[in-house]
Lab assay of single mutants.
Amino acid sequence: QSSFEIPDDVPLPAGWEMAKTSSGQRYFLNHIDQTTTWQDPRKAMLSQMN
């Protein structure tokens, strides 16, 4: 996992939702293809902008 956290005020891509496990770990739900991931989809968006 990357060492940086994206602030919560940065919006997720369309169709995504952020949730937390009972222990507080963030994960991401993709409602478009109905998958979940630990990888923040905003990181991919930001790396494409740089």
Rank of each mutant, 00 (worst) to 15 (best):
G24S: 05
Q48W: 07
G24D: 08
D33T: 15
D8I: 06
M45N: 11
F4V: 09
K43T: 06
S22H: 01
H31Y: 06
D33G: 09
M45K: 11
N30H: 04
P7L: 12
P11C: 09
A44Q: 15
L46I: 14
Q34I: 01
R42W: 01
G15Q: 04
T35E: 10
I6K: 09
P13N: 00
G15R: 04
M18S: 10
M49T: 15
S2N: 12
K43A: 04
T21G: 06
A14C: 07
T36A: 06
M49K: 15
L46T: 15
A14Q: 15
F4N: 08
L46N: 10
S47F: 09
S2K: 08
P41K: 01
Q1K: 15
S22V: 11
K20S: 11
W16I: 04
P7N: 15
S47A: 14
Y27V: 05
A44R: 12
R26E: 09
Q25E: 15
P11G: 06
K43Q: 04
T37A: 04
F4W: 03
H31L: 09
E17H: 04
Q25S: 13
A14R: 13
D9T: 09
Q1V: 13
D33P: 00
M18W: 05
Q48F: 05
P7R: 13
Q34N: 06
N50I: 09
Q34P: 01
S23D: 15
I32N: 02
F28W: 07
F28D: 03
P7T: 15
T37Q: 05
M45G: 12
L46R: 13
S2R: 09
S2M: 13
K20V: 14
E17K: 06
T37I: 02
H31T: 10
T35V: 15
E17M: 05
D40V: 00
G15N: 08
F4H: 14
Q25N: 09
G15I: 00
Y27F: 07
R26H: 02
T21S: 10
R42Q: 02
A19E: 06
E5Y: 10
L29G: 02
L46D: 13
T35F: 14
Q1F: 15
P13Y: 00
S22C: 10
Q1E: 08
T21L: 07
A19C: 08
Q34M: 08
S23R: 10
K20I: 11
F4T: 11
N30W: 01
S23K: 13
W38M: 09
F4K: 15
N50R: 08
I6T: 10
W16C: 05
G15W: 04
L29I: 15
W16P: 02
R26P: 08
W16S: 04
T36M: 02
H31R: 09
T36F: 03
E5R: 10
L29W: 04
L29P: 02
W16D: 03
M18N: 03
D8S: 10
I6Y: 11
S23F: 09
M45T: 14
S22A: 13
M49A: 13
I32P: 01
D9Q: 10
A14F: 08
D40N: 02
V10M: 14
G24P: 02
S23E: 15
T35C: 15
E17W: 01
L29D: 01
G24W: 00
R42N: 04
K20H: 13
S2W: 04
S47R: 11
D40G: 00
F28C: 02
M45F: 14
W38S: 06
A44P: 14
S23Y: 08
S22I: 10
S3C: 05
Q1S: 05
G24V: 01
E17R: 04
T36L: 03
A19L: 06
K43V: 10
Q48M: 12
E5D: 13
A19F: 06
T36Y: 00
I32Y: 15
K43G: 07
M49E: 15
I32W: 03
D33L: 14
F4P: 08
D33Q: 13
L29C: 08
S2I: 05
W38I: 04
S23A: 09
E5P: 11
I32C: 12
L12G: 02
Y27W: 01
S2L: 10
S22Y: 03
S47M: 14
F28V: 02
W16Y: 13
P7C: 14
G24M: 05
N30V: 00
V10T: 15
A44N: 14
P7S: 15
Q25D: 15
E5S: 14
Y27S: 02
Q25L: 11
Y27L: 03
P11W: 03
S2C: 06
R42M: 01
T35W: 11
K20D: 10
N30T: 01
S23M: 07
W16A: 04
W38R: 05
G15E: 06
V10C: 09
M45D: 15
I6F: 11
S47N: 07
Y27Q: 04
Q1R: 04
T37H: 08
D8C: 07
P11K: 07
Q39A: 10
F4D: 13
M45R: 13
Q48P: 14
D33C: 12
K43N: 10
I32S: 09
F28N: 04
Y27H: 03
P13W: 00
G15L: 02
T35P: 01
F4E: 13
M18V: 10
D9A: 10
Q39W: 10
M18P: 02
